[in-house]
């Protein structure tokens, strides 16, 4: 027990270690509750005490939302290249290869088709674990192809966002992925195919300023950070203290930018209900 307790929450995003070896205990970063991993998993990665939504990846979301064995992944082989020959403290190529090895993912998004309580959908889910869920050419192209698939099959489109924004190592090319995904969504709109955007913690920067905010319905998980400029940037730029709950899902609901907040446990049922209401 610490002598001095932090009076305010740290504004840095709450990163959690996901790869805990089997049989260990998980500690909730919000209320410090200790949970067994199995207990935590069966609770859809929520804290059993306070309901804190731990950050999870595409694998977990597909398992939670889709009917068993219904997921068919698309464009698995798409890989990032290094058009800028970018190097900061580490060459971009090395960064990609290292991340691919450590995460067992090929980029920051996985896309495919699946069924939600027998309703066919095209589903995309971002992985924050892959270079901060950053959107580069591969994320843009995969979303673009998923939209094409939705147009072709007439299945509704779901995108689960979890992203720090555009991928700096692809410079203006990553910026153009905002344009690319949005122009494709314009086409989806013309075809009158539903698009539900699910915003999870965190969704910031380029993703928010493009496809994540453009759902026919925008829904969010509780307390998810959703922003254009992240809290650190806003604080630095304005020199002001940020109001409590700033840029959290509840704040966005209050300001009219999302339709509702849904607990992860209710997500599948709520999506089913929605899809039945809007799809023929």
């Amino acid at each position: 027990m610490a002598w001095f307790k932090r009076s305010k929450d740290n504004i840095a995003s709450d990163t959690q270690k996901r790869d805990v070896p089997d049989g260990t205990w998980i500690k909730c970063p919000e209320c410090s509750e200790m949970m067994h991993k199995m207990q935590w998993e069966s609770n859809m990665y929520l804290c059993t005490k306070c309901g804190h939504h731990f950050r999870i990846g595409s694998e977990e979301y597909f398992k939670i939302l889709l009917d068993e064995d219904s997921f068919k992944e698309m464009d698995k082989k798409l890989r990032s290249v290094d058009p800028l020959n970018f190097e900061d403290t580490k060459p971009y190529k090395t960064r990609i290869n290292d991340t691919m090895k450590s995460t067992d993912l090929s980029d920051a998004i996985r896309t495919g088709t699946g069924k939600i309580n027998s309703i066919d959908v095209v589903i995309c889910c971002m992985d924050f674990g892959f270079i901060g869920g950053s959107m580069g050419s591969v994320v843009g192209e995969k979303i673009s192809r998923a939209i094409d698939k939705a147009i072709k099959t007439k299945y509704p489109l779901l995108i689960i966002s979890s992203s720090g924004g555009a991928r700096m190592m692809e410079g203006a090319i990553s910026l153009m992925q905002l344009a690319k995904t949005s122009t494709k969504l314009a086409k989806l709109n013309e075809e009158k195919i539903p698009y539900i955007s699910i915003l999870t913690n965190p969704t910031t920067g380029g993703s928010t300023a493009s496809f994540s905010m453009l759902g026919d319905l925008n829904i969010a998980e509780p307390k998810a950070l959703i922003a254009f400029a992240g809290p650190r940037v806003v604080k630095q730029a304005t020199g002001k203290d940020l109001p409590p709950g700033f840029q959290r899902a509840e704040f966005l609901l209050e300001h009219g930018f999302i339709d509702f907040i849904v607990n992860r446990k209710d997500m599948k049922d709520k999506l089913t209900q929605l899809l039945k209401l809007i799809c023929n």
């Binding site: 949005s182 314009a186 400029a229 304005t238 002001k240």
Partner: peptide
């Protein structure tokens, strides 16, 4: 990147323009 800009939906305003301009 201001507090009020975020409150009034900076991201939504930009995203909306992208889709509408398309």
């Amino acid at each position: 990147p201001g507090i009020e800009a975020e409150e009034r939906g900076q991201a939504e305003a930009i995203a909306r323009n992208l889709i509408e301009m398309s």
